[in-house]
Design a protein around this nucleic acid. Structure first.
Lengths: 218, 218
DNA sequence: CTACAATAAAGTTTCAAAATTTTAAGAAAA
DNA sequence: TTTTCTTAAAATTTTGAAACTTTATTGTAG
């Protein structure tokens, strides 16, 4: 069901494992054995190895020479580190975008926020997070990525995306209480970020980003 | 000569290729064919593939599905991007280190600077950069890494190291004029960074870092 | 002469098995 | 009982060859 039967399977395996990792389908530190996963995707162990090697590249999987792969471990320190670093990158990226972004950027940001806001409102009402988690996670990622998309630095943006995924992995793994009031809160926070960005108010946007993330500190 | 004959060769292949890449033994964009490199290290093509996959994770090698590996391309935009991002990370890391660093940090920073300074002075006098490039590159990396080593963020530090290596790769590839006066200049700049750090003067240290890097802008 | 298709060559990815290393289990000694 | 050594099992890495893709070459039609 989750496995595509297309000719070139590797990208699908990558995407599927990536998705599983950021939605905590594996418990942190769990061993990822190519030989076991092989069966799941109907390919050889080496193909899995390739994919895991690439996922270790982006920090979702930890890899140690001669002792294989694991789903990235989590700890309060790690979560704190990821959150701090994410703030740094997003604040800087947002500042640059506010300076450089054109009308198209504003439009795309509005659009991304609209989608995100819709999904978050639905979850806040219905409360069925499990069903919406992949959808919401994707929309949130897109909103934050769009926010920094006009920063003019491909490197900053690529690094941010990696960190965002690590953040998601760490937070979902922590089994936070994603209750209804949690979503009420982040709806407000995302709105504040959007408003500050469209007002081209750098300090206020930085502050809004910090407010959005500070709950994840130790 | 460059190839170790130990039992477990993979780490050596990784280190050796890493070294070659940051010292521009490959021209930017040059194709890295496992089949060719295989002979060099006396192993199979897949082992090379593994190493290249990991090097692509740290940005030294570019990888495209179904069309293999290349030494990272270079361009004015890319160099500018790397330089800007490096400044961001180093300024932030240095600021945090200045706030958090203890006496041990000061001592290590002094030691790293002492070594670096010695090598740079030698090069400035003798001018034989080619012979000293790996030594100097390693010492400079260590100095900058030590500067941010007390920042308290493993993620920031690891990211900085990757960016430093990409920076080195980009700059050496550009065939800059590493003349004697170039080294005279950076000796002064490194001294300024050290002094500001030991004085615990964040703004001055940030400024010194910027001054050290601004020559690499477009 | 150019554009397009067919073919050949080169390069990349996948595979299953062999070689190596790590981890686990059990036996002997302190 | 605890520790250490030996042995067996499990897992990882490496290999060489097969399958597949891309790129280059050649030939044909417009």
């Amino acid at each position: 069901m989750t496995v595509s039967t297309e000719k070139t399977e590797t990208p699908d395996i990558y995407r599927d494992l990536h998705q599983r990792l950021v939605t905590a389908a594996f418990t942190p530190g769990e061993k990822l054995k190519p030989e076991k996963l092989r069966a799941l995707y109907g390919c050889s162990a080496n193909t899995i190895r390739d994919v895991l090697l690439r996922l270790s590249t982006v920090g979702l999987v930890s890899f140690e020479e001669q002792r294989g792969f694991r789903a990235q471990e989590t700890s309060p320190e790690k979560r704190h580190d990821v959150a701090r670093f994410r703030i740094l990158l997003e604040q800087e990226g947002a500042s640059l975008s506010i300076r450089n972004g054109d009308l198209m950027w504003e439009a795309q940001l509005s659009a991304a926020h609209h989608k995100l806001s819709h999904i978050e409102t639905t979850i806040a009402k219905k409360g069925e997070l499990d069903a919406y988690l992949p959808l919401w996670s994707g929309a949130e990622r897109e909103f934050h990525d769009t926010l920094i998309s006009a920063c003019g630095s491909p490197l900053l943006r690529a690094t941010y995306r990696n960190i965002y995924d690590q953040f998601r992995q760490q937070m979902v793994a922590q089994e936070r209480d994603f209750g209804s009031n949690y979503f009420q809160a982040i709806i407000t926070e995302h709105q504040a970020i959007l408003d500050a960005a469209l007002d081209r108010d750098e300090p206020r946007c930085r502050e809004a980003i910090f407010e959005h993330m500070k709950r994840n500190f130790i």
